[in-house]
């Protein structure tokens, strides 16, 4: 009976996790020792700040991040730019606002409360400019891909010459990690493409790492708070469980002693 129970519980656990294991892609992703991984994971501020630089200088020319506002860059648990830096970053962008009292739209410098400016006015425009492929919005991209951060990083460094005999369609590139190995986006990163303001050497893998770090935060901005709250809740629950367990023993001892 007890062995049966044990098997039963084990089977349930296997069932719960099986779908995720089973769906793992055939090509092994490059695993990184991300600082945000694990139950005590935190973001690396300087990597987030560098990652924002890569995003804004490289990715943002095609990829939008509609769910983020400039103010998010200064919020706790994120890149934590100072308030003045956030204001300066926002002011670099031209925002279309209005209509004004004459009914006209006008442009003004960005404010922290503004959403990230999109490179294209709509999806159709972005598809027209990119040979029919829609550069996906990057706000929750990490959560929208199997393998998450490791997948994004692998993809960014996964550009290769196609193996002999592989028939590559027109206007696409070979990528080891892309589903079907064909990707419309050309290799976006190359050594020295950006010059990091903190002096870090901008190698291709460094940039891929930083921008993935940034995108992971963008997809899950409250991750640090979630981990921290989680520890408090679980430690609290364990204490309460122990108290209730001993109280239960006491209460039931009345019945047990009657036997």
């Amino acid at each position: 009976m007890n062995i049966n129970k044990f098997i039963y519980i084990k089977l349930i656990i296997i069932l719960l996790f099986s779908s995720n294991i089973l769906f793992a892609s055939d090509t092994k992703l490059i695993k990184q020792n991300w600082s945000f991984k694990g139950v005590t994971g935190k973001f690396d501020r300087s990597s987030l700040q560098r990652g924002y630089q890569v995003y804004t200088e490289v990715c943002a020319s095609c990829h939008s991040m509609n769910l983020l506002s400039y103010r998010n860059l200064g919020e706790k648990g994120g890149p934590e730019f100072s308030l003045d830096q956030v204001k300066a970053i926002a002011a670099n962008f031209e925002i279309t606002d209005g209509p004004n009292s004459d009914g006209e739209m006008f442009t003004r410098p960005g404010r922290p409360s503004d959403k990230f400016v999109s490179p294209y006015p709509n999806v159709q425009a972005s598809m027209a400019a990119n040979g029919g492929a829609y550069p996906p919005d990057m706000s929750v991209l990490v959560k929208a891909r199997k393998g998450g951060s490791d997948y994004i990083y692998s993809l960014l460094v996964g550009y290769e010459d196609p193996p002999s005999g592989f028939k590559l369609d027109d206007g696409v590139y070979y990528n080891k990690y892309m589903d079907g190995n064909q990707i419309k986006m050309s290799n976006p990163l190359s050594d020295g493409l950006v010059s990091y303001s903190d002096g870090t050497n901008a190698t291709e893998s460094q940039m891929a790492k930083d921008v993935t770090h940034f995108l992971t935060w963008a997809a899950e901005p409250h991750l640090e708070n979630r981990h921290k709250t989680g520890w408090r809740v679980i430690i609290f629950l364990i204490i309460l469980t122990l108290l209730v367990y001993f109280s239960m023993k006491k209460v039931w001892s009345r019945i047990d002693s009657e036997k």
Binding site: F236, L237, I239, L240, L243, V244, F246, S247, K250
Partner: peptide
Amino acid sequence: RRDFLFTASYTVGAVGIGA
């Protein structure tokens, strides 16, 4: 000790509900 145990359980439980 029994009283203490029950009081502690109630108190910790009440804190949890509040939080």
